[in-house]
């Protein structure tokens, strides 16, 4: 049996080009030492590391040293391998600060729960020889849904009447997926634009990355519900509408919007959620859903079920 990386690659994947042949790791505790050309051996398969993953936000690259982009030497498939990294940090959510934790165990549990459910990224959790959770994740071949929507070449009216009904239908399906998690006492934990993707091949919407968690108990799913509302505003508006956007629209189209402080997001004080003020053809019922997430609201959604009930009524209306 091959006992070094070069021998392994030559034997199993001779066409794979690597700049370096490193070591074979069966203990992933020290993930920062696992680099390009090293191999992670797990469940009798060999995954050669190509690079660390990076998160790109506003032009800044943030390396995630505990997340490795790999190729499986046995089957040639690409995977993302997530290793154990415990951290807690303060998440700035608009006007609120929330203590957030990264939990590999939670993500491993959810991967098992959603196995073969196409509404979620797929993967298998394993333990390395030291008992560390190692999650082998299948890569979603697609793009972020908000990027996909932003690139649709149509003015908002055309987008709303011709594209949005189908987007809403699929978004409802994605919300049902979150409801499924909640019914199983799990939360996604990090519902934001980066984490709902559209798969190129199938057009399916797929949730990714479930390793965030929080120590809330009275309303454990509140953050997920708020995330769903925020995404709806983004997709319905064909992007987020901020004060700056409003100003630009007012200047170019000589429009005068009657927006008050009650029309803004409860958490993000510069995001307009009362989109009917900007796009009057948006049905009242659909706009009302977003108004539940605004400063002016006195009633909030307590469950995804309630949110879904309203969304389904709107879809029915849009399809008439």
């Amino acid at each position: 049996m091959a006992n070094n990386v070069k021998e392994l690659v030559t034997k199993l994947r001779p066409t794979l080009s690597l700049a370096r042949y490193g070591k074979i790791f069966t203990d992933t505790t020290d993930f920062s030492n696992i680099d390009h050309g090293d191999v992670i051996k797990i469940n009798n398969l060999h995954y050669v590391v190509i690079r660390d993953e990076v998160e790109r936000s506003y032009g800044i690259e943030d390396p995630k040293y505990w997340v490795k982009r790999c190729v499986c030497l046995e089957n040639g498939e690409r995977y993302i391998i997530k290793l154990v990294f415990y951290e807690n940090f303060i998440l700035n959510l608009g006007v609120l600060k929330i203590k957030c934790y990264r939990s590999p165990e939670k993500e491993a549990r959810i991967l098992n729960l959603v196995k073969n459910d196409k509404r979620f990224m797929q993967g298998m959790p394993f333990k390395d020889e030291k008992g560390n959770s190692v999650r082998i994740i299948e890569i979603v071949i697609g793009k972020k849904l908000d990027d996909y929507i932003a690139k649709i070449e149509a003015d908002h009216r055309t987008y709303f009447f011709e594209c949005f009904p189908e987007i809403l239908e699929k978004y409802i399906y994605a919300c049902e997926a979150i409801n499924f998690l909640h019914e199983n006492n799990e939360k996604h934990g990090d519902i934001r634009r980066d984490h709902l993707w559209i798969e190129y091949k199938t057009g399916d919407y797929v949730w990714i990355d479930f390793d965030y968690t929080f120590d809330f108990y009275e309303n454990p799913f509140g953050l997920d519900i708020f995330g769903l509302g925020n995404l709806l505003a983004c997709y319905l508006g064909k992007g987020e509408i901020s004060n700056i956007d409003l100003e630009k629209m007012s200047q170019t189209k000589e429009l005068d919007f009657n927006i008050t402080k009650d029309d803004y997001s409860l958490l993000y004080s510069n995001r307009v959620y009362n989109l009917k003020q900007i796009y009057p053809y948006i049905p009242e019922r659909l706009n009302e859903i977003l108004m539940h997430f605004t400063v002016g609201s006195e009633v909030f959604y307590e469950t995804v079920d309630e949110f879904l009930l309203d969304l389904n009524k709107c879809l029915h209306e849009l399809k008439k």
Binding site: L96, F216, N219, G222, L266, L267, V295, S297, F300
Partner: peptide, 15 residues
């Protein structure tokens, strides 16, 4: 607590 906090975290007394 604020309205935003109540929405996200819930409120024992309000419940």
């Amino acid at each position: 607590i604020s309205k935003a906090e109540e929405f996200l975290f819930g409120s024992v007394s309000n419940k």
